[in-house]
Design a protein around this nucleic acid. Structure first.
Lengths: 346, 346
DNA sequence: CTGAAAGCGCTTACAG
DNA sequence: CTGAAAGCGCTTACAG
């Protein structure tokens, strides 16, 4: 245990599998083909052989090599799952939903992070394809429609958070606009007229849709849109924090703020707290996404919810359906407003 | 686009790769061996051939099949990464740290969730091995030492959050006890004597260590341990929420509460808020883990921090070192107390 | 029912 | 420098 090298092979090149089909076959006195058939239940085999083979398998705790199997079969029972960041609280539940459903079907998920930029997303998708995944699930992302279509020539893709159709493509769009509208309508209904909007990064399509929903709700109530009340954030806490500070520094007056997502809202909370403003006493706040943590912040946050857990589950179901040659029969989860304690009349 | 099947292969069995080494070779007028050598830079090849081959590769956007390569090479450039839940905010940054570092080395991470139970963890590790991962990184978990040692016979393992040695095993322990001690010492230093402890689930070793640290700090200050001030939680928000309610319902008196982790603390926040108790005015709160969200909750939470991001990065470095035949030269990140606004003298 | 053979797509000694 | 051949560990027509 001193200066000895780790036992087994050296130089990292993992020791070859000790026990293979061949070993089991020899030990049970049959051919590898038979062992394979028994393992896969792919042909009827006499009970006698079956027993002998199963004993040998058990003895060695043998399970076939997935790479070899994948090579022979032309499929790997692996689905590539692209999210923007493995550590983003927004995608977290979605990834879990995917993992759970895929597991039930005997598939594994290969998760990778696109980091909100096209080149990383490209890298991930290529990696997925190189690794021979049977399908891909993408959570939003910056790739162009045509890029996605190109990848879909190689392997079926489920995209969520956008609307896209094409061969081997299935999409589960998120109704950003309607969600935003719900949120702002709620604020207006309780009497707010000066409603600020903490936006995402400028170019992001989801953010634009949410902005559109905000404007639509204002228009519904014949409230004039005031561009001064829109402050750009970055979808993260620090962006929300700075956005509200900017608004306040500019002397903008507002009694409520609608945030492009909950993470931004969390930053808004801190900014208001620092200024000594009470939520909802002085300012009402509404978020979007309903993160798990949003029901534990103080006060619990009113937020637009479209279950990301379900979105993940349904994405998995969709890709499995495609792989089974069926047409996916799933729709995006419903969108709703969860009213908590961060909103009240002005 | 109507009732047509998705174009390409049917029945899910993914179409065979259209372009292989063979295709490139034919097109460039060389043998597959040569193409392989050029791709891998594994032998010097005349410039002329190289150019022709590279052109063909570019033309088809060819990249070798990872499964086939893995089979031939005996390694897959994949590391299995077991966390307890892909959507747990605690592991999130650690997973990212792993992903980033592995990517730099050309490896991919296969993430799976152990769900805080032995049988799922077993399933994951077996799956990793079946899939021929080159190494495994485990974040805490319930598996026995001997079980881990058994898996390590097949493949090198880095475990963090526990201390374990053996061939092909490297561990990055977390100093739970010392961390807890720091936290409680801080409370005592600012004058608290009645300090409650919101524990994790009973059996969990990390939780026990943190309890031990809590008791040690009390002992250091000659404060008698009062079992009534310890309330069991479950490492999650709802457990912390209930634990504090229980304490309050029992009429226990305390001026501060130390929580086994930040998620519990978030639940404690909500419980105190519901009772109309102010933090830190009425009760000081300290957490453990310093989740990203803890600097945005109100008031920002004082917490014990051992960077999970770094833990992840170092785990990746450790496994890469082992695979390279080197002895890992990494230590767990330092542990420290981040003092924010949730604590003050009673 | 069962085995020998070919093949999945790559890599790498082994010979020129 | 380059190619033919064998092999990685499995599966599956193809013949009995």
């Amino acid at each position: 245990m001193r200066s000895k090298r780790p036992s087994g092979s050296s130089r990292g090149s993992r020791s070859r599998r000790a026990v293979t089909l061949r070993v089991i076959a020899d030990e049970a006195g049959v051919s590898p083909s038979t062992v394979s058939r028994i393992i896969n239940g792919t042909a009827r085999v006499s009970d006698q052989l079956k027993v002998a083979v199963q004993a040998a398998i058990a003895r060695h705790d043998f399970r076939p090599d997935a790479a070899a199997r994948g090579l022979a079969l032309g499929r790997t029972l692996t689905i590539g799952v692209l999210s923007q960041a493995i550590d983003s609280p927004f995608y977290a539940e979605g990834l879990r939903g995917v993992e759970t459903r895929l597991l039930q079907a005997g598939y594994a998920a290969l998760f990778m992070s696109g980091n909100w930029n096209r080149s990383d997303e490209d890298r991930c998708l290529r990696e997925f394809i190189d690794r021979g995944v049977d399908g891909i699930i993408m959570f939003s992302g910056c790739l162009s429609d045509s890029a996605i279509r190109r990848y879909a020539q190689r392997v079926p893709i489920v995209v969520n958070g956008r609307s896209l159709r094409g061969p081997r493509i299935f999409s589960l769009p998120v109704n950003d606009r309607e969600g935003a509208r719900l949120a702002v309508r709620h604020l207006i209904a309780s009497g707010h007229r000066r409603i600020a909007f903490v936006a995402g990064a400028e170019s992001h399509p989801d953010g634009l849709e949410r902005l559109a929903g905000y404007r639509a709700a204002l228009a519904d109530a014949a409230i004039e849109f005031d561009a001064n009340l829109v402050a750009e954030g970055n979808w993260h806490e620090d962006g929300g924090f700075r956005a509200v500070n900017r608004l306040l520094d500019e002397g903008q007056r507002f009694t409520a703020v609608f945030c492009v997502n909950d993470q931004s809202a969390h930053g808004v909370y801190l900014a208001l707290f620092r200024r000594g403003l009470k939520i909802p006493g002085d300012v009402s706040v509404v978020g979007f996404d309903d993160l798990p943590s949003s029901s534990y912040i103080l006060p619990p946050l009113t937020s637009v919810r479209q279950s990301v857990l379900e979105l993940g589950e349904r994405s998995a179901e969709a890709i499995l359906a495609i792989l089974a040659g069926r047409r996916p029969r799933v729709a995006p989860p419903d969108i709703e407003l969860i009213v908590r304690e961060s909103t009240r009349p002005p």
